[in-house]
Computed example of a mutant assay.
Amino acid sequence: MVTVVLVTGVSRGIGSAIVDLIFKYEADAVVLGVARSESALQDLKTRFGKKFEYLAADVTDSQRTKRFVEEMVAKHGSLDGIIANAGVLDPVQDVNGLNSEDWKRLFDVNFFSVVSLVSTTIPFLKKSHLGNIVFVSSGASVKPYYAWGAYGSSKAALNHFAQTINAEEPAVNVISVAPGVVDTSMQDDIRNTFGPRSMTPEALKRFADLKAHGQLLKPQVPAAVYALLVLKGIPHQLKGKYVRYNDDALKDYQISP
């Protein structure tokens, strides 16, 4: 039976690595990718052919996402798992310069698009022999990072949503996993744009030092955890929980940094 997985934010970074690794671990899988960049999606389509289907759209476009999911389930016969990876960091602003409209826009991407995606996919996931839901969270969901209030709050909401799904629907499996500090374009933005503009020198220094000392993770490291969770299943003791990618309970899902 072919495993069908939907992944958001697949155009670069962790999302792109997740697609690569799903096919590495299960060559016959079908991946449904969602991202805004059609050129990046076409590149993935060229590499993986009919095993990769895509929607070029913003994840907040719930109607287009719903139609895409329904069309793909009709075509492939099932939907077995989702990985909600798409997310944004901006606005980066401290409490003395808050703009609630900026926060709302971030929450639309980081949280409400995921609520909508779960609403659309859960009827299909309940019918699957797998039914796995994997959220890409953040360490910022459980501790404050200077000027990251919007981002951290949205990821904390995602963690709680995982608890809610676990408590209310036993026919699916869900987990929220932080990826660590990964060498992606978001880190570039932190060091070169958001940090100098909105963060204190002390808060920015941590991220600059990680890059300077070669301590940022390759995207494939957390991506392997996400890919294997959606393919192999979520450990019973971690259902509904928030954990880091390198948690000891996930050792069977990890690759070396």
Rank of each mutant, 00 (worst) to 15 (best):
residue 256 S to H: 07
residue 69 V to K: 12
residue 170 P to E: 07
residue 47 R to N: 02
residue 234 I to M: 11
residue 37 S to P: 12
residue 9 G to E: 10
residue 31 V to L: 10
residue 250 L to T: 10
residue 50 K to D: 14
residue 12 R to N: 04
residue 10 V to C: 01
residue 204 L to D: 13
residue 113 S to R: 13
residue 41 L to Q: 08
residue 13 G to N: 01
residue 255 I to G: 03
residue 75 K to P: 04
residue 202 E to W: 00
residue 82 I to F: 11
residue 225 V to D: 13
residue 256 S to Q: 11
residue 243 V to L: 14
residue 47 R to L: 03
residue 3 T to D: 14
residue 90 D to G: 05
residue 44 L to F: 04
residue 141 S to P: 11
residue 155 K to H: 12
residue 236 H to T: 14
residue 155 K to E: 11
residue 153 S to M: 14
residue 150 A to I: 01
residue 189 D to G: 05
residue 244 R to L: 04
residue 175 I to D: 06
residue 202 E to D: 02
residue 253 Y to A: 07
residue 228 L to T: 06
residue 257 P to R: 02
residue 119 S to E: 12
residue 115 V to F: 07
residue 127 K to W: 04
residue 95 V to T: 00
residue 235 P to R: 07
residue 20 D to G: 01
residue 109 V to W: 13
residue 105 R to M: 05
residue 39 S to F: 06
residue 215 Q to P: 04
residue 240 G to D: 06
residue 74 A to F: 03
residue 196 P to C: 09
residue 205 K to D: 11
residue 222 P to Q: 06
residue 167 A to W: 07
residue 143 K to Q: 15
residue 188 D to Q: 08
residue 57 A to K: 13
residue 47 R to M: 02
residue 105 R to N: 07
residue 32 L to E: 01
residue 238 L to R: 11
residue 232 K to C: 08
residue 82 I to T: 14
residue 245 Y to P: 04
residue 222 P to V: 06
residue 25 Y to R: 10
residue 41 L to K: 12
residue 43 D to T: 13
residue 93 Q to S: 03
residue 168 E to G: 08
residue 253 Y to W: 05
residue 239 K to N: 14
residue 207 F to H: 12
residue 156 A to E: 12
residue 173 N to A: 12
residue 57 A to M: 13
residue 90 D to E: 13
residue 237 Q to D: 11
residue 224 A to K: 09
residue 94 D to N: 12
residue 172 V to T: 01
residue 45 K to R: 11
residue 196 P to L: 08
residue 236 H to P: 06
residue 257 P to V: 00
residue 8 T to V: 03
residue 166 N to S: 14
residue 186 M to T: 01
residue 33 G to M: 07
residue 7 V to K: 10
residue 215 Q to N: 11
residue 135 F to H: 14
residue 126 K to R: 15
residue 31 V to G: 07
residue 57 A to S: 15
residue 202 E to Q: 02
residue 107 F to Q: 15
residue 40 A to E: 13
residue 126 K to M: 13
residue 132 N to G: 01
residue 60 T to W: 10
residue 54 Y to F: 15
residue 46 T to E: 15
residue 11 S to W: 06
residue 119 S to Q: 14
residue 32 L to I: 02
residue 177 V to E: 09
residue 150 A to T: 02
residue 254 Q to K: 06
residue 81 G to H: 09
residue 206 R to Q: 12
residue 2 V to N: 14
residue 112 F to S: 14
residue 30 V to W: 01
residue 73 V to Q: 07
residue 23 F to G: 01
residue 123 P to S: 09
residue 150 A to E: 02
residue 57 A to T: 15
residue 66 K to G: 05
residue 26 E to Y: 07
residue 77 G to S: 02
residue 256 S to G: 04
residue 234 I to T: 08
residue 204 L to T: 08
residue 183 D to H: 03
residue 83 I to L: 08
residue 145 Y to E: 05
residue 96 N to H: 06
residue 55 L to V: 10
residue 37 S to Q: 15
residue 147 A to E: 00
residue 16 S to W: 00
residue 207 F to A: 11
residue 254 Q to L: 07
residue 126 K to T: 09
residue 193 T to H: 06
residue 200 T to W: 03
residue 204 L to V: 07
